[in-house]
């Protein structure tokens, strides 16, 4: 900063001053945690397993084992398709029927992208939290996210820099930073 920034320097020093919270703050937060489901390490294990399953693997099997594997995969795919519903197919009844959460699939076509992330209220807009995977050579990217009933704002972040709204969902009109975004509503609010 230059000399003519003296006013700014003064402002920054003032803004750096500590802010005091009510002394009961810690206690109130801890009290709130009582109503929150306790975090468990197995959640990360599940993500690890999901990552492992979605990574290409080479398996050596006998012809008989191969037949069994094909049958098993067909069954898994059938069940999977029942759960991995496109976002537009999620209805309040469906969300209610599933119970706590609905598994919502987010899809976008971005043929030239090197990476795509889903950012939204549900992951605190963290770019690294929910990466999409390229599922087809024609540039289709997809990810499925378990969401409970509610209204969510979200966007796709392409190559860590370009924000895109979901062309298949209503636009979010209340983004503070004027970025493109979309709205997804699950269940009755």
């Amino acid at each position: 900063m230059t000399e003519r920034d003296d006013g700014l320097k003064q402002a920054i020093e003032l803004l750096k001053r500590p802010v005091s919270l009510d002394s009961s703050f810690d206690e109130r937060v801890m009290k709130n945690l009582e109503s929150v489901r306790r975090p468990r390490t197995w959640t990360r294990s599940l993500w690890t397993v999901a990552d492992w399953m979605s990574t290409g693997r080479t398996l050596t099997v006998s012809p008989l084992q191969g037949l069994g594997l094909v049958a098993g995969l067909a069954a898994l795919l059938f069940v999977g398709r029942m759960w991995l519903m496109p976002e537009s197919a999620i209805s309040p009844e469906r969300a209610a029927a599933i119970g706590e959460t609905a598994l919502v699939q987010f899809v976008i076509v971005a043929p030239t992208a090197e990476s795509v992330s889903l950012v939204g209220d549900f992951n605190d807009w963290r770019a690294s939290e929910t990466p999409l995977r390229r599922v087809e050579d024609n540039g289709v990217w997809s990810v499925s996210v378990p969401l409970s009933a509610g209204r969510y704002r979200y966007a796709f972040l392409v190559d860590g820099a370009t924000w895109l709204s979901d062309p298949s969902a209503p636009p979010a009109l209340d983004d503070e930073f004027g970025r493109p975004g979309s709205v997804l509503t699950i269940g009755e609010l």
Partner: peptide, 8 residues
């Protein structure tokens, strides 16, 4: 609270 909920 969110930090606690998603700590894993």
């Amino acid at each position: 609270v969110r930090g606690y909920r998603y700590l894993a």
